[in-house]
């Protein structure tokens, strides 16, 4: 009988072992605790030299886990790098920065304002600090820069501009996607979709063993404010191979008014010419053609057929480009 009792007690106490979390459910401190800043926003160093391998990050600490957002904005370029997370501090794990931006425009060597916004259900706290970019980040491995228009047009570029009104096919300076110069393409052609183009020669032998899935065509592109530009303006890109095959990709519409990265794998281009070997060979691309197009407003006959878009009457096409480059394995990081 005693043995049975001992077994009872043994069963009870041998089973007294369970893995326990710190607590069940979401933290009450996170849900109801007061939001207090424990350490203000600082940067790991005041000067960010992205040309050397060194940790560059931001630090701050507050009293509860919450969704936070840190935006670093270039004072001159307007470039933005954002970090978001759910935690109670910023450190090297969640704000490590390699100098890239969210999208075009890219950062310049300039001062940047970093702004941290902490918000719970009751309070919103904003903190800022200033950092300087002393050296820009190096270009990605295996990146081939075709044109950034900082020192003019690439050698042997062929430009074609239609007859039209206020035709602008020039290198402009100002708020570029990268650096200070970009190529403006626009104007008004009321009788044809085609406004103009540039043909840039390239040599891509280094990509001979790269899969079309892993070769990216990158370009910065900006339209204009809707209402001031046609809503249906668009661009067409041709990549020509040395066997005469021509592959195309259409970006339609171009209806945004801030610089954006357009990054397209070569595998998404479609054959538009008569086939030769009917195979995309990344190592044989010898020309890039970038065309600016828009539905003409008319009146009169539209060259190449199609119907006119009277709503575009008086609207000037704007399809400006910058930073044309090939990258492998991943899109370009602006």
């Amino acid at each position: 009988m005693r043995n049975i009792i001992y077994i009872f007690i043994a069963v009870v106490f041998l089973s007294c072992n369970r893995e326990k979390p710190d607590f069940l459910g979401g933290s009450l401190n996170d849900q109801f605790g007061e939001l207090l800043v424990l350490d203000s926003l600082t940067s790991s160093t005041s000067d960010f030299n992205f040309s050397i391998v060194s940790p560059r990050f931001f630090e701050a600490q507050w009293s509860k886990n919450l969704n936070w957002q840190l935006d670093v904005v270039g004072v001159q370029s307007g470039a933005t790098k954002s970090f978001t997370g759910f935690s109670s501090k910023l450190d090297i794990d969640n704000t490590s920065w390699n100098g890239s931006a969210n999208d075009f425009p890219s950062f310049l060597t300039e001062s940047c304002v970093a702004t941290l916004v902490l918000s719970d259900n009751i309070n919103t706290i904003t903190m800022s600090t200033v950092v300087s970019i002393t050296e820009l980040k190096p270009l990605q491995d295996n990146l081939m820069l075709v044109a950034d228009f900082e020192e003019g047009m690439p050698v042997n570029t062929i430009k074609f501009v239609q007859q039209g009104e206020s035709m602008t096919f020039n290198i402009e300076s100002g708020q570029a996607a990268n650096g200070t110069s970009y190529y403006a393409m626009g104007g008004i052609v009321n009788w044809d979709y085609y406004l103009g183009s540039i043909k840039v020669p390239v040599e891509t032998e280094e990509y001979i063993n790269v899969s079309p899935l892993l070769l990216y065509f990158n370009m910065a592109l900006i339209g204009g404010v809707l209402g001031e530009v046609p809503a249906n303006q668009f661009m067409k890109i041709y990549l020509r191979e040395d066997d005469g095959e021509r592959y195309s990709y259409e970006i339609n519409p171009v209806n945004w008014d801030t610089w954006r990265l357009v990054s397209i794998p070569y595998s998404e281009f479609v054959l538009e010419s008569d086939p030769a070997n009917n195979t995309k060979d990344p190592g044989t691309i010898n020309q890039i053609e970038i065309m600016s197009l828009s539905c003409p407003s008319g009146p009169g006959t539209i060259v190449g057929g199609g119907t006119a878009c009277p709503e575009n009457m008086g609207l000037q096409v704007k399809t400006d480009i910058d930073f044309i480059a090939f990258s492998t394995n991943e899109s370009y990081q602006p």
Binding site: K20, D22, F23, L24, G25, S27, L28, Q31
Partner: peptide, 8 residues
């Protein structure tokens, strides 16, 4: 409680 609810 064996384990706290939302707190230790």
């Amino acid at each position: 409680e064996i384990v706290g609810s939302g707190t230790t």
